[in-house]
C-alpha cells in the first residue's frame, strides 16, 4: 500500500517543484500564474461538487453560494483581524467550517427525502445568499454589499493553493475509496436498494453534502485572497452551473475527471480570451457551449465516465504497447 503511494507522491512533488521554479524564473508570468491558481481553486470547488453529485448523486444547484460564503467569511476575518499567515489559515478554516455548517443545517431536513428536493432547496439558497451579499454592508460596512468588498489582503500564493488542492483531492480520494464512499455510490445508484442493505442513506448523503460544501467554502477563501476583491455577482446562482458543468463533463463518479476538467475549463476560457481577441470576448460563451454539446454527443458519460486516471494505468498502457500483444485491458 505504502509503496504504491510513493510514485504518485513523487509525481506531485515534482509537479510542484517544476511549477514553482517556472514561476520563480518568470517563465510563468503573474497573469498566467493567477490563472494556474484559479484553476486549482476551481479544482477544489469542483472536487467538492464531485463528491456531492458525482458520487452521492445529490443534485445541488447552490455550490457557488457555499463558495461565496467561504469567500466572504474568510475575507471578513483577514480584513478585521489582520493579514498574517496565521489569521489567513484560520480564515480559510472558518470559511470552510461555515460553509459546512450551513450545508448541514440545510441538508439535515432535506436529505431525509428522496429525489431532487435538494436541487430546488439549494437553488433557493443560492438566490438568498446573493441577496444577502448584496445587502451585507448593512450588517458590516467591511463586507461592502452591492459595491463589492475591497482591500482584502493578497495572501493566496501558489504554495497555499497547490497544497490545499492536493489535500482536498486526497481527502476526497480516501473518502471515495473507503466503505463510506461505497455507501455513497450505492445511494447514487439506487437509494432504495442502499436502504435495504442497511445503509443509513440520510447520513451518507449528508456526509457528502457537508464535505463537498466545506470544500467549496475553502476554495472561496482562497479566491477572496487571490484577487483581493469580492463582488456578489461572482457568486450568482448561474455560477453554480459552471461547477456543475465541470463535474458532468469530467464524468460523474470520476475524481480525476473532475480535476482534469476543472483545470482544462479555466485554461480554455482564458485561452479563448487570447484567441478571440477583445472584440469577440463574449463569443467565448458560444465556443464553450459548442464544446459542451460536442462532448455530450461524443461522450455522454463525460470525459472519464466513472473511470479514474492513474499513473499506474498510463505506465502499464505504455508497457503494453511496447511489449506483449495481449494488452492490459
Amino acid at each position: 500500500m505504502r509503496k504504491e503511494m510513493l510514485l504518485p507522491a513523487a509525481a506531485v512533488a515534482l509537479l510542484y517543484l517544476v511549477l514553482a521554479l517556472l514561476r520563480q524564473a518568470g517563465v510563468i508570468g503573474i497573469y498566467w500564474g493567477q490563472i494556474v491558481d484559479l484553476a486549482l481553486i476551481t479544482t477544489i470547488q469542483a472536487v467538492g461538487l464531485s463528491l456531492i453529485y458525482g458520487f452521492a448523486g445529490q443534485f445541488s444547484l447552490g455550490h457557488a453560494a457555499f463558495y461565496g460564503l467561504g469567500a466572504y467569511v474568510a475575507a471578513f476575518i483577514t480584513r478585521t483581524q489582520g493579514g498574517t499567515p496565521l489569521t489567513f489559515a484560520l480564515a480559510l478554516l472558518a470559511g470552510a467550517a461555515v460553509a459546512g455548517i450551513v450545508a448541514l443545517i440545510i441538508g439535515l431536513p432535506i436529505l431525509r427525502l428522496r429525489s431532487d428536493y435538494l436541487g430546488i432547496a439549494t437553488l433557493g439558497f443560492g438566490i438568498i445568499v446573493k441577496v444577502m451579499l448584496d445587502n451585507a454592508d448593512k450588517l458590516s460596512p467591511v463586507l461592502g454589499g452591492a459595491r463589492g468588498m475591497a482591500g482584502i489582503p493578497r495572501l493566496t500564493t501558489f504554495h497555499w493553493v497547490f497544497w490545499l488542492a492536493v489535500l482536498t483531492i486526497l481527502i476526497a480520494r480516501n473518502l471515495v475509496n473507503s466503505s463510506h464512499g461505497r455507501s455513497c455510490i450505492a445511494v447514487r445508484e439506487d437509494e432504495v436498494a442502499a436502504d435495504i442493505m442497511g445503509i443509513d442513506t440520510t447520513q451518507f448523503k449528508t456526509l457528502a453534502f457537508v464535505m463537498g460544501c466545506a470544500m467549496a467554502g475553502l476554495a472561496g477563501g482562497l479566491y477572496a485572497h487571490l484577487y483581493s476583491f469580492l463582488h456578489p455577482s461572482s457568486f450568482d446562482f448561474l455560477k453554480s452551473f459552471d461547477v456543475l458543468l465541470v463535474v458532468v463533463l469530467g464524468g460523474l463518479g470520476s475524481l480525476t475527471g473532475t480535476v482534469v476538467t476543472s483545470i482544462g475549463w479555466v485554461f480554455l476560457l482564458e485561452g479563448l480570451r487570447d484567441v478571440l481577441g477583445q472584440q469577440f470576448l463574449d463569443w467565448r460563451w458560444v465556443v464553450y457551449a459548442l464544446i459542451l454539446i460536442a462532448v455530450m454527443i461524443a461522450r455522454p458519460q463525460g470525459l472519464m465516465g466513472g473511470k479514474e486516471l492513474s499513473l499506474d494505468m498510463l505506465l502499464r498502457r505504455r508497457a503494453a504497447r511496447g511489449g506483449a500483444d495481449h494488452g492490459a485491458a
Binding site: S179, R182, S183, I185, A186, E189, D190, V192, A193, A194, I196, M197, G198, I199, G306
Partner: peptide, 18 residues
Amino acid sequence: KIFTEMTVQENLELGAYI
C-alpha cells in the same frame, strides 16, 4: 434493484455492509 454499475462481487459486498 441490484447495483448495475458494480460487479457481482461488489453487490454481494454491499449486501454484507452491516
